[in-house]
């Protein structure tokens, strides 16, 4: 059950999908301190692809490499770095560890092409990411809030969402 490692996936993507891989910048997670230097950032070992090449990369994993099971889409809000990172996790149906492709979008314009038209299993994952983080999945057939009610304002999992005193827990009391 020897499957590809993250480094081998990057090598494959570099050869077979030109212009898909991007060089990931280190993530700081915390804002730089007022005094002293910023601590060394965290560099992911997974393949990071450009958002516009995401669907091509996912289909490459499914159709060429046989990773037909999309397990998870996890969004992380890196507020200090000003970006959202989406991690797509794929497994091979015959077993073995996962392959992850990540993509990064700026916090101001969080737009990612949707996987749902080609991969229906992404549907609820993407709706959840839209509901909690406000990621716009272009091409999604039914991009509506999945947990919260439609009139809710804001995206509660973002790191800058007010946790105290916002309008839903009585700021005017």
């Amino acid at each position: 059950m020897a499957r590809l490692s993250a480094a081998e996936l990057r090598e494959r993507l570099r050869n077979d999908l030109p212009a898909a891989l991007v060089e990931p910048a280190p993530l700081n997670l915390k804002a730089a301190p007022a005094h002293g230097a910023q601590a060394a950032g965290f560099i992911t070992t997974d393949a990071v692809v450009a958002p516009e090449r995401l669907v091509a990369a996912a289909l490459y994993l499914r159709d060429t490499l046989g990773y037909a099971y999309l397990s998870d889409i996890a969004v992380v809000d890196y507020l200090a770095d000003g970006l959202f990172e989406l991690g797509y996790r794929f497994y091979h149906v015959e077993g073995g560890p996962s392959l992850v492709i990540k993509t990064r979008v700026p916090r101001e314009t969080p737009e990612v092409p949707s996987l749902t038209p080609v991969w229906p299993g992404a549907n609820f994952h993407e709706r959840e990411a839209f509901d909690l983080y406000g990621i716009i999945f272009t091409g999604h057939p039914f991009l509506r809030r999945i947990y919260l009610w439609d009139e809710f304002e804001g995206f509660p999992m973002r790191k800058d969402f007010p946790k105290q005193g916002d309008k839903y827990i009585g700021a005017d009391e």
Binding site: A68, G95, A122
Partner: peptide, 24 residues
């Protein structure tokens, strides 16, 4: 079942022998 990424007894009921205890 595979395209919808269902797991567990629902996936195995559809004939895919995918059990994480064996697969990984």
């Amino acid at each position: 079942a595979l395209a919808y990424s269902v797991t567990g007894p629902v996936l195995r009921g559809s004939g895919v022998a995918y059990d994480i205890r064996k697969a990984e």
